[in-house]
Each structure stands twice: as structure tokens, then as C-alpha cells.
Design a binder for these strands. Structure first.
Lengths: 254, 254
DNA sequence: ATTAACAATTAACAAAACGTTAATTAATAA
DNA sequence: TTATTAATTAACGTTTTGTTAATTGTTAAT
């Protein structure tokens, strides 16, 4: 098709993939949890054997959207092509269209974020496009020189995750199906800073009453786990309940 | 610039402009408030005198983004060009890029919403692009056949407004600088459905304690207004406080 | 076998916030 | 003077919090 308007030189889809890793913190202790972002190191040459732009730099996975797909579909495709990972829950969060953001021309990026369970990233592997893939802690990632405006995209994605973690049951996607309260607490604390979560007594009193989690039972009795403690701890799972909050209803943090 | 990828046929910026109108409800009564959306009727011919696509249909204001601007800037520009309105607070909320959404080709729309004070829309006027401009109630707008996928965009925008109204001090942008509690209540009720807002006694007990509004004083004494009632009502204004809520802290609506 | 240690609770309770019902307060209109 | 009306305020019982102090079940070390 021909049209009378100047057209963009490209439409790309980028994905900021986050996960929370668990490091053992000694026997019978809840593991240390840390928020990480998965970045790829851009290959020296591209698919066609041409030198790759921003080669060698760390970047968000992503690439050009094809005319027969949406940016969302491209995100799924590129994530798999570049990192071998699939089946993740992808969410759009912004568009980056500053005229100077990519020196190849007028290129618009549709940005997404992903919350991944640590285990779902196990199958990641380097590819033609990505000579290296690593999980970086946020501090590490902030110290890197990222390709294009990926630093800004990552900053914004982080902000969205914090917001979603506080307002939705996002934590679910960072946890196994059945989990113990201290695991939930650990996940929340990687992103949120709130005494009602970090204070054990407050968190353990309130958490069991949250309407979006429920205690797991087996054969009529409550199912417990000793994975992280000597004392058996109750296992919980998320329900389908979608919590709603409002600044006009609830007590606010000052 | 030349590149090896298929490129989009256009990049557009669309804007869903919402306002809340006040209709007098009789003397000494708080006015009836209603959420409205501003739509334009697409002209038969475009700037260049060519027949316009989707001519005669009602649509969101918007148009093609130029290569030297961002979609955000285009939103400001087109809103002014098409409706004569400027100075509004514009927010991105989504991208519409389904390959079949526009039969001119592969056209990506960056969607925005605007919350406008009724008075700021006073200066709206028809233009070359818009043979008519009107404020529609949501029910009216839902009954129209809108151009392109603007119906879906409008639906999504509405959803974002409801969310923002509950989670942020968005209501501020629908109100005058100084307002009375019943006005705030009226604004909230156009979008939110919550007994703690619709029940007068509950709302009037809670509202004065909200940390993001403050009573207005003049010459050391509280400033009151009789605009909507015989009894003088306290005037309030929004502060800069940004409230934070969390599903892990607050009581949840079941 | 006892005991120390420790994470995961549970108990108890006071303080804060909420929801409701019933008054009170101007101002106006009758 | 009185009825009316919207905007408050008072009062009070109920929920929800935040906190401190116990309790429990298990392992590891006497």
C-alpha cells in the first residue's frame, strides 16, 4: 500500500523479563530472594551475516514486528527466538518513540514486561541473536551500558512491577503453586518497602486473612511444609479473587 | 533511510477526551454530574481535498504522527488542530496494532486519554478535519458506530479512568481548584460504585481526613461556599500528597 | 533424654479506622 | 415562626491494625 504520509522505518517489540531468584541461606532458613532482570548480549552479526547494530552491548530481548502480527505476538516470538524461553505472561506497558532513540531511523518500540518464575527461565540458552544471556540484579543492570534507550525502558518497567506488586496478585507469578508465607513475604520484600510486610508479626497475622490466598489442605487436613523451617509451615495458594483497593476507602501510607 | 525490514504504513496518535459535566439540579442542590466523552465527526474531505476515510463517522480525535515528533506531541498537536483545545493533561494507555484494524494498511495507533475540566473544553470548535464536535454520555457513545477500532479504544480508556480514579488523585482534574465535598463525591460517583462514597454519612465523615485534600482558609478562618447549599459548605483543595495503597496493607472490597 | 535455638505461628490487647444512626447547624421559603 | 434541606458533627459499636509476649515442632548439641 502507498500512502501520502511519511512512514516509520520500523516497529519493534522489546521485553523486560524479571524473575526472583532464591539463594539458599543455610538449612532450615527461608532463602534469600532477589529481583533479577534477564538481558542478552547482542551478537556481532545478525541473521543475514551483516554486522549488528549496537553489537556486543547488553540489551532487552526484542526485535522487529512483522506486518502480519501484533507487537504482543512479536514479543512472544522474539523471546523464544532469542532466548529459547516461552509460555510467559507478557504485558504491554509503554511506547518509546523519541525520534532520536535509534540511529537507524524512525523506529518505534512497543515495550513489555514479563514476570517469570525462576524455573521457567531454566531453559534459556544463547542463540544466533544473543551471544550471551544472563540474569542481572537490578544494581548490576543499572551499572551496565545498555543498547538504545533500553536503560529508560528498564527503569519504567521496574516502576510498573512495583506498582503491580502492590496493587494486584502479581506476586503469584513469582511463586510456586503452593508456597509458605515466608516465601510470599520474601517476594514482596524484593520490591516493596513496607513495615506491614517486613515486620514478621504484622505480616503473619494479616496474611492468613488475605482474601486472595487460601490454606492448602490434603486428605482433610492442612498441608504443611518443612522446606524452609524446622517447624512445619502452612502451605498456601492463590485463589482467583481479584482484590480492589481505593484511596477513598482505605487508610493511606504517609 | 533504507532498511531491510517491512515497515509500517503509518503511526497515529488518538486521544479519548473525557470530562464531567455539571447540570443544575435546582437551587441549593449539588448539580448532577455526568461523565462525557468528546468525539469528532470526520469530515468528508481531508486537508488536501481528497475524500476522507471513514468520513462522516464519529471518532476519537487524532491523526498521523510526524517523524520529528513523538505520539505524545502529536496528540497535543492534533487535539488542537482538530478541536481547538489545548493545555490538557494527556496520558498514554495503550497501543492498537492489529494488522486488520485500518484498511489503509499496517497502521499503528498510540492511544491516549485526557481528563478535562468542563471549562477547558469550552473553546472547542469544529475545524477542517472535524465537521462536528460533541460531548456524548457514555451510553450515547456506546450506541454510536465509531470509526476504525475506536470503540475498543474508548472501552479501554474508560477502564483506565475508573482505575485511576480509584487509585490516584485523578478526580482533581475534573474539579475546580477549590471545591466542596459534595462536588468531589459527585465526580467520584460518575465512575466509581462504592457504598463508602455513595453513602453520605460515611463519605462526609471520611473525606475530611483524606491526606490529599485540605480545607481552604482565608484570613485565618475557614472558607465556605453556598454555591450548592443553604448551609455554608467547607471548601477544599488537593494537596501534593500522592497516596499509596496496597492489597497487602488495606482492607479489601469483597 | 534434655535442652538450646529457631522459624513459624498464635494469643492477647490496645489503638486506629470504619460504618451507622441520630442529632445539629445555618439559610431559605412558606 | 416553622418546615425544609444540605452539610456537617456526635456518639458509639464493630473491624482492622500494630505490637508484644507466648507457644509449637523440629533439629542439633550436650
Amino acid at each position: 500500500m502507498k500512502n501520502q504520509f511519511t512512514t516509520p522505518d520500523g516497529y519493534t517489540s522489546d521485553i523486560a523479563v524479571f524473575t526472583i531468584t532464591s539463594e539458599s541461606n543455610g538449612e532450615y532458613k527461608p532463602p534469600l530472594k532477589k529481583l533479577k532482570i534477564m538481558l542478552i548480549k547482542r551478537s556481532e552479526i545478525d541473521h543475514e551475516g551483516n554486522p549488528n547494530i549496537e553489537a556486543g552491548k547488553w540489551a532487552l530481548p526484542g526485535g522487529f514486528v512483522r506486518p502480519n502480527e501484533t507487537a504482543f505476538q512479536a514479543a512472544e516470538r522474539k523471546l523464544f527466538e532469542e532466548t529459547g524461553v516461552d509460555g510467559l505472561r507478557i504485558k504491554h506497558f509503554g511506547v518509546y518513540d523519541s525520534p532520536s532513540r535509534d540511529n537507524r531511523g524512525w523506529i518505534i518500540s512497543n515495550a513489555h514486561y514479563v514476570i517469570a518464575n525462576e524455573s521457567s527461565l531454566k531453559k534459556r540458552k544463547t542463540t544466533l541473536d544473543a551471544q550471551d544471556i544472563q540474569l542481572f540484579s537490578i544494581e548490576e543492570a543499572l551499572a551496565l551500558e545498555l543498547a538504545f534507550d533500553h536503560r529508560a525502558i528498564m527503569d519504567d518497567a521496574l516502576w510498573f512491577i512495583k506498582k503491580d506488586m502492590a496493587l494486584t496478585t502479581l506476586a503469584k507469578h513469582f511463586l510456586p503453586e503452593e508456597f509458605v508465607l515466608s516465601e510470599l513475604q520474601g517476594v514482596l520484600l524484593t520490591v516493596l518497602d513496607d513495615p506491614s510486610i517486613s515486620t514478621d508479626a504484622a505480616f503473619f497475622r494479616k496474611a492468613p486473612t488475605l482474601p486472595f490466598i487460601e490454606a492448602v489442605s490434603e486428605n482433610g487436613k492442612l498441608k504443611k511444609s518443612n522446606a524452609y523451617s524446622k517447624t512445619p509451615a502452612q502451605l498456601y495458594r492463590f485463589t482467583d479473587f481479584q482484590p480492589i483497593v481505593s484511596v477513598y476507602r482505605n487508610k493511606l501510607k504517609c
